[in-house]
Amino acid sequence: MIPIDVRNLNKTYKGNFQALKNINLHIKTGEIFALLGPNGAGKTTLINTICGIVRPTNGTITVDGHDIITDFRAARSLIGLVPQELATDAFETVWHTVNFSRGLFGLAPNRAYVEKIIRQLSLWDKKNNKIMTLSGGMKRRVMIAKALSHEPKILFLDEPSAGVDVSLRKDMWENVRTLRDSGVTIILTTHYLEEAEEMADRISVINKGEIILTDNKDDLMKKLGHKTLTIDLDQPLNTVPPFLSAWKLDLDACAKQLHYHYSTAGGDTKVPQLLAGLSKAGIAYKDIHTNQSSLEEIFIELIK
């Protein structure tokens, strides 16, 4: 059974704005799938349409074979959703709000299971606190607990690292992997290439409502993994020495930085040879750093 199967999906919002254009998407069981795209690309619209929050204009979506409109109960029961925006019932306690979600999704109360989820998300000592007394990061974890309360087989995470600081981000990525290992299929959205690279098995790149391509992470990174190595020199250079011509280096305007553009495709970056060459020639440098191409640059690359 295909966990999520989207065929020829279009969404036109009121005012005639087409947010999704002929989307086709087939998610595989047990994978972590990333929807990668800049703000306004249509990621949230796509997720919300699959989850029943936004009405599709046309096209079909099935969840484990169940149509999301005609068989919405079966389809929705399988899905847990953590939306992009923090939205919680400020006056409810953590315990009540997670149990509420379980009931809403039609499952009999199960204290032990709910306790397990709350403990996993490190919220157990806050279980009797009103949600309004929690920090932003805790609120996001409450929303994850709510989404997991009904034992979903498919979990949607819309921009899971928005507003989560870097140290907690690593924890969350760990949590997501643990969930995947327990058999949950995960679909997340992000506008950070690094996050998609870190987490996903497969990636769809979406821009202006269109899926530009879908590929395995490794293959995609080969196509898109353009990097720039910047070398901060000790002394200004007049010209790039001829023996470095193979690297096609750029010298910046004040002659104190060398830029090397390369691709991670194929594995051989020629970076070590470059650095060895510099040392041999006695060109001293203070620092080196690399930059990954931005999403915008990638889109320009892809649309070419």
Binding site: I53, L81, A87, F105
Partner: peptide
């Protein structure tokens, strides 16, 4: 969002 995405 939760009610709208629930099997209700």
């Amino acid at each position: 969002y939760e009610l709208l995405s629930a099997p209700v």
